[in-house]
Design a protein around this nucleic acid. Structure first.
Length: 490
RNA sequence: GGCGUCGUGGCCAAAGUGGUUAAGGCACCGGGCUUUCACCUCGGAAAUUAGGGGUUCGAAUCCCCUCGACGUCACCA
């Protein structure tokens, strides 16, 4: 019986959901689905200084918004609980104790000050900074002395060096790191009794029987350290794969500090990006489908096609233009009902009861073709709301004041009863044939109508506009324009 | 600085184990469609595959060197 594939996303709740975390989660999800495996959500919250419940919520909400669901996790449980590291602090210490008894680890009494001094010494002499393993051989007397001083020890794991550590990376291929470059014996239990990241991860990955670990390449050295831990704990390590990081156009890693809210999924959510667009974009940044000319695909399709061998080894470049391109695509191709529901929160300034459910869908439909993100719908569609619309004085004098314009408006007003309001093309035809009768066409025909109805000479298709506005609004606006139009006087 | 990873048009990127004119997408430019913008559609411009050496009849693909970018060197994760 072959073992089931088990992968995870293991964020730490020290900030809102990051684009990079979302991308890593996506790849793990894809890998799990492709191999009929399990996707696990584990919370790595051992840094109680920076962790916060509000971040946990943001991360979970963001991932779910993208359409990622997990089979086991801190919010839904599973067969290998707990899925939250702070709930198994004692467990880590027990495992560390075992390592202590086996001689793989020892108690280190070095103080923060001593370690800082060591680091400074190394810096001054131009040496790479590392722990010098001085705590390995401490006499009984010395230890008693430290304890009498009130020093609280940390647990350090012995890193035997030199020693080549290598693995066949699922993305990068063979990688070798020498244990001598790992910074010396590593702390596994901090003096506050809490496991360090590298130790907790290994214990958890063993407990939860992870088979594959896909993460950013900033973890390459951690992987080497963790491999040593797996060995000491006598457990088979998972397969590792490291993706390149995400950079901006200046080769700067995407970070909160440099890019602000742009690195958070939440930003895109509030700006009105479609999760389908973000997912498609994020997957495509460093993965190529088997059909390498394929640009647009859904998460489900990607699950079927995914092949880790086609994940790029290089850095991904964040390209807002491309994301916007994807988003405008999804904005106009997603089911109208979906887009309409998602548009509602951006239209709260208006009285939505002016339109029925179906009418609102038509309204959104006429607008969505010109948007790159949903937040723009408020400005683009404001003219649809209210009995009348604001027309600038300039618009009045340049577009509405001529006698020709007035003729167009008057004539349209009297054609309202003939207009098939549920048929945009039919409405347009009426307008055109009316223009023909009047001998007015092009700008001279359309602009006065646009100005009177929407307050702008640009916008969606005229027939659709009139169709959506409906007879009552059209009449009111034409009348208002005729009455106040000329010179901007009321 | 040590160690590690990566380096194809402005940007992303394809090219199973080396083989005719180095895909495709974004952005850009032009035509068509439209009253206009956008969409859509057609077309265009844009790469001595970081640079230099090799191996080979032949290399983006293999080897060596150089350069560059990034990552990592915590009792943070």
């Amino acid at each position: 019986m072959s073992t089931e594939v088990r992968v995870r996303i293991a964020p730490s709740p020290t900030g809102n959901l990051h684009l990079g975390t979302a991308r890593t989660a996506l790849y793990n999800y894809l890998y799990a689905k492709r191999h009929n495996g399990k996707f696990i959500f584990r919370l790595e919250d051992t840094d109680n200084e920076r962790s916060d419940e509000k971040y946990t919520k943001d991360i979970i909400d963001g991932l779910k918004w993208l359409g990622l669901t997990w089979d086991e996790g801190c919010d839904i449980g599973g067969p290998y609980p707990p899925y939250r590291q702070t709930e198994k602090i004692d467990h880590y210490e027990r495992i560390a104790d075992k390592l202590l008894q086996n001689g793989f680890a020892y108690l280190c009494y070095a103080s923060t000050e001593e370690l800082a001094a060591l680091k400074e010494e190394q810096r001054v002499s131009g040496l790479p900074s590392r722990y010098d393993n001085r705590g390995r051989e401490v006499s009984i007397e010395q230890r008693e002395k430290y304890q009498a001083e009130g020093r609280v020890p940390s647990f350090r794991f012995r890193v035997e060096e030199p020693q080549d550590i290598h693995w066949d990376d699922e993305i990068k291929g063979p990688i070798t790191v020498n244990s001598a470059d790992l910074g010396g014996d590593m702390v596994i239990i901090k003096s506050n009794g809490v496991a360090t990241y590298n130790f907790a991860v290994v214990v958890d990955d063993i407990d939860m029987q992870m088979t594959n670990v896909l993460r950013g390449e900033d973890h390459i050295h951690n992987t080497a350290k963790q491999l040593l831990l797996f060995e000491a704990l006598n457990c088979k390590p998972p397969h590792f794969g490291h993706t390149g990081l995400i950079f901006d156009s200046n080769d700067r890693k995407l970070s909160k500090r440099e890019h602000g809210e742009l690195v958070h999924i939440d930003y895109y959510k509030t700006q009105g990006y479609m999760p389908e667009a973000i997912v498609n974009y994020l997957i495509k940044t460093s993965w190529t489908p088997p059909d390498d000319t394929m640009e647009k695909f859904t998460l489900e399709e990607a699950c079927q096609m995914f092949d880790i061998k086609r994940v790029s080894k290089t850095h991904a470049r964040f390209d807002m233009d491309k994301l916007n391109w994807y988003n405008s695509h999804y904005l106009r191709s997603l089911p109208l009902s979906t887009v309409t529901e998602r548009a509602r929160p951006y239209l709260t300034d208006f009285d939505l009861s002016e339109y029925s459910h179906d009418e609102l869908e038509k309204l959104v439909d006429t607008l969505r073709g010109s948007l790159t993100k949903l937040s723009e719908i408020k400005a683009a569609g404001s003219f649809f709301f209210g009995k009348t619309v604001e027309v600038s004085d300039e618009m009045k004098s340049t577009v509405l004041s001529s006698s020709e314009a007035k003729k167009v408006l008057t004539e349209t007003l009297s054609s309202i009863s003939k207009m098939p309001f549920d048929d945009p093309a039919g409405v347009k035809q009426i307008v055109d044939s009316m223009g023909k009768e009047l001998g007015i066409k092009g700008k001279n025909l359309y602009w006065p109508l646009r100005a009177a109805l929407a307050g702008s000479t640009q916008g969606p298709d005229l027939g659709s506009m009139i169709s959506v506005l409906g007879p009552t609004k059209v009449q009111a606006r034409l009348e208002a324009a005729l009455k106040n139009g000329g010179n901007g006087h009321v």
